[in-house]
Design a protein around this nucleic acid. Structure first.
Lengths: 356, 356
DNA sequence: CTGAAAGCGCTTACAG
DNA sequence: CTGAAAGCGCTTACAG
């Protein structure tokens, strides 16, 4: 019923003042008498006045809005981190009463078009993008458009823009070191398509860890598959069916690791005893896997907040390259890592190679 | 480098026309000569012109924007459906080039304030809210403000607004019927705090199913707990430690069901054999639970798209109460449901009641 | 301390 | 078919 929206003009008339005075009173101009200021404030509250933002933003020349470019689903994966990221971004923006827009394009080309439109039509003052490709054309576009942005993740060449990422390479070195201490010498790697930078980074970490520890560098131990649980199952199947299978497997994501567990179960192998498996992401859900999944957990909780703060700083004029922040993942030991059991793998293979 | 944003005025000057003509050419007015129209279009493309939306929307009198009020986390739960919902909403809005805003308040009171501000400041033409309370004050507020909205879920009294929901009551009747056919006579219910309407609905379904099938109506079989996996573990613990424990348990969410599985494992009970467990949500992840979780799956995929379309229809003037859509959940049988095993439960209790 | 006026970048009757 | 002008609802120099 209070459906009628009240404008500055109406409020001013109600007070017997001009819009000019009322506007300045509401915006805390110093040259407004305290008495008037309070009168105006009170009336605004009573009438439920709230400045029309389209008008205000047109006038002040900024959209006071930031856009999160939601990543498309890769494979069948849901994106459990999106809600958390948005909450954090929103928190950062709330502090100055800015708005958060969400956009998701159907295709990569669509992404380019919508970024260009979003910026050119003055709808956003900055953009956050997630999970970039190795060589992501959106970054060059944003730079050309002169639009402030921050990347959640990194590209191959990440020197000249702002990003916030978790050190996947370091994480995989950590995983390999851990497995080496448990006595593993042949460790498999289940990866995702390498056009994603995160996939490449994690493979680099695996490669470095394996070399550094003098472990087997058998190329068959590296399996790239579709970025889903089924991809993980397929890749683990290939690994375990090798003449000389690994005693441990590291996976680029928890979802792929869960798939890998299925492949072990199908071969009557016990994860964590016969074969160790380590995932990546730290999904809460892994706690309830069969058995509970050991994983490299990313510190996701503050990513959104931090990305928001960084973007606002850049919009305020800070130099983007001052914001290149690398977080560390940490190992969360649950039940799928354990001492190397060389026999188990071998035995299994010989059984399958000599059917009854 | 193309950082300069080009305005109508610049474009018009470039063409030797007035902004009036150029604007109408771009907006497909019939009274513009085809030749001019094409010339204008071409120049706009070349200069990368895109109408400033703040100005445009101020002029046409609608924000062309819709807001999704993101639910706060309940307990430790992530909201895996948020990304999917946003994608669907975005799809519906994309068709007319509208924008999607996301807002999350810290508190319920904050929700009220931000809704009022969002509407009064002319930032949004409509709002989508998720997971309402039994008696949700936001709904009355939106009605008073005269702001078009649609609810994802329902309140206790849902006659006079638009909603899109899954029939939780029906789903739980289905679950009870299924378990009854498997021979279960004592079925436990693990619920969430009843201020959420979905929690009440699902309990109603349980109650109805149990009564209809003449099963035990022992009040101890109903356990309300915190809406998390730990809550599920605690509630299942209470149920299984009853003198006469249930042979099956239905849970209001998959997350709580996963917690319940832990309680069974802790008592060396095998889910699906000794005690059946059925969850609700159809989380993909349940596939990898220990053992894979039987669940009532909600048809989530199109919720966002449908909510978006409904909201746009209402904004266009349609009567909200024409949009009250109830979807059905369906049983996804994985490994945690099975024939009643009355002995197991009893045996277990007696063992615990007579320590060695 | 307050008011009158211009301007933000569009759209859209209204003339011609 | 095109142009000149008013208006959307604000903000902000500029007078007084």
């Amino acid at each position: 019923m209070a459906g009628k929206t009240v404008s500055l003009k109406v409020l001013a008339a109600h007070l017997g003042l001009t819009v000019s005075t009322v506007s300045r009173a509401l915006n805390d101009y110093a040259d407004i008498s305290p008495v008037t200021r309070d009168r105006v404030r009170k009336a605004a509250d009573e009438l439920g006045y709230s400045a029309n933002q389209n008008a205000r933003r047109l006038s002040i020349g900024t959209p006071e809005t930031v856009c999160y470019l939601m990543p498309r689903q890769i494979g069948a994966n849901v994106q459990p981190f999106v809600a958390q990221l948005l909450a954090g971004l929103g928190e950062a923006l709330n502090d100055r009463n800015w708005d958060l827009l969400v956009s998701q394009a159907e295709t990569s080309v669509g992404d380019m078009t919508s970024i260009e439109r979003l910026v050119r039509s003055g709808r956003v003052a900055g953009i956050v993008i997630s999970r970039p490709l190795k060589n992501d054309p959106r970054i060059k576009l944003l730079q050309q458009l002169g639009c402030p942005f921050v990347v959640h993740g990194r590209t191959a060449n990440s020197v000249d823009y702002a990003w916030y990422d978790v050190d996947g390479e370091d994480a995989f070195v950590t995983a390999i070191n851990h497995l080496e201490r448990l006595g593993h010498r042949r460790i498999g790697f289940i990866g995702a398509p390498l056009q994603y930078q995160f996939a490449q980074e994690r493979l680099d970490g695996y490669t470095r860890g394996v070399a550094h520890n003098g472990l087997s560098q058998d190329p068959d131990l590296v399996q790239i598959a579709e970025f889903t649980d089924d991809g993980g199952t397929a890749a683990a199947g290939v690994l375990m069916d090798l003449p000389n299978p690994p005693t441990a497997i590291v996976c680029v994501s928890d979802m792929m690791a869960l798939g890998a567990l299925e492949a072990l179960h199908a071969r009557s192998l016990t994860p964590g005893e016969d074969v160790s498996v380590i995932g990546y992401d730290g999904l809460y859900f892994g706690k309830h896997a069969n058995p509970p999944l050991t994983t490299l957990a990313q510190p996701q909780a503050h990513a959104g907040r931090r990305l928001g703060d960084i973007l606002l700083s850049i919009i305020d004029g800070a130099d983007p390259i001052k914001f290149q922040e690398l977080q560390r993942a940490h190992l969360v030991q649950r039940m799928t890592d354990g001492p190397a059991n060389v026999d188990a793998g071998q035995e299994d293979v010989s059984v399958r190679e000599e059917p009854q």
